[in-house]
Computed example of a mutant assay.
Amino acid sequence: MAEQADEGPDALHRQAQEAVLSGLRRGDDIHDLINAVAPHHAVGHFTPDAAMLEVAVSALELACPAGNEPLVYEGLQERYLPEVTFTGRVEHRNIQYALYAAACMRGGLQPDLLHDAGWWQSPLWTYAVFAVVIYARAAAERLDVPTTEIVQRIAARHGIQLLSTR
């Protein structure tokens, strides 16, 4: 449930983005990142699917600037998110969808998130958080900078001022 039911979708959208970026900057593990975004999911009111995919798009743009070598899909999850094992066809399809949806959005095609993933048992935003981590780590490796630097660049693109770390 959302932290405050009276908060509008725009506030929840931004807070979800701040939560995932702040956690990534602190070096939180993937489960902590999911838990940080979860309070911003208000069933029947707001889901952070688009908010997380927008952050993933920014990370992908940093990993693959126009004219540079594209990322290869094969092995992407195992290389940049080895701590998560996707089992079964459904989980593999869901992470694939999140990675592809961010790539579509980057290319100018808005996927039909409600129609495509609205019926999923596990919400799309959880897989979109995985996509954020995968693309942010890929960007850090390709640019030879720490992930924290990538997080700062993404936050700047979204006009998000992250609080100083502990």
Rank of each mutant, 00 (worst) to 15 (best):
M1L: 13
A2T: 01
E3Y: 13
Q4E: 12
Q4Y: 10
A5I: 06
D6Y: 14
D6E: 15
G8P: 06
P9R: 13
D10Q: 12
L12M: 05
R14C: 05
A19C: 13
V20D: 07
L21I: 14
G23Q: 05
G27E: 08
I30E: 08
L33G: 04
I34E: 14
A36R: 09
V37W: 01
P39F: 05
A42T: 12
H45E: 09
P48W: 02
A51Q: 06
M52W: 07
V55Q: 11
S58M: 12
S58G: 13
E61Q: 15
L62R: 00
A63Q: 04
A63N: 05
P65G: 12
A66P: 12
L71I: 00
V72P: 08
Y73M: 15
Y73Q: 15
E74M: 12
L76V: 01
L76Q: 00
E78I: 05
R79I: 00
P82N: 08
G88K: 03
G88H: 03
E91L: 03
R93Q: 15
Q96E: 08
A98H: 04
A101C: 04
A103K: 03
M105R: 14
G108F: 07
G108L: 07
D112P: 11
L114W: 14
L114C: 05
L114Y: 10
H115M: 14
G118N: 08
W120Y: 03
S122I: 13
S122M: 13
L124H: 06
W125G: 03
W125A: 03
A128T: 06
A128K: 04
F130P: 01
A131V: 07
A131P: 10
V132P: 01
V133Y: 05
V133D: 02
I134F: 06
A136Q: 03
A138P: 00
A139T: 04
D144I: 10
V145Q: 08
T147M: 14
E149Y: 13
V151N: 01
V151R: 00
V151M: 02
R153G: 04
R153C: 06
I154G: 02
A156I: 02
R157H: 13
G159N: 15
I160N: 12
Q161A: 11
S164N: 10
S164M: 11
S164Q: 11
S164P: 10
R166I: 07
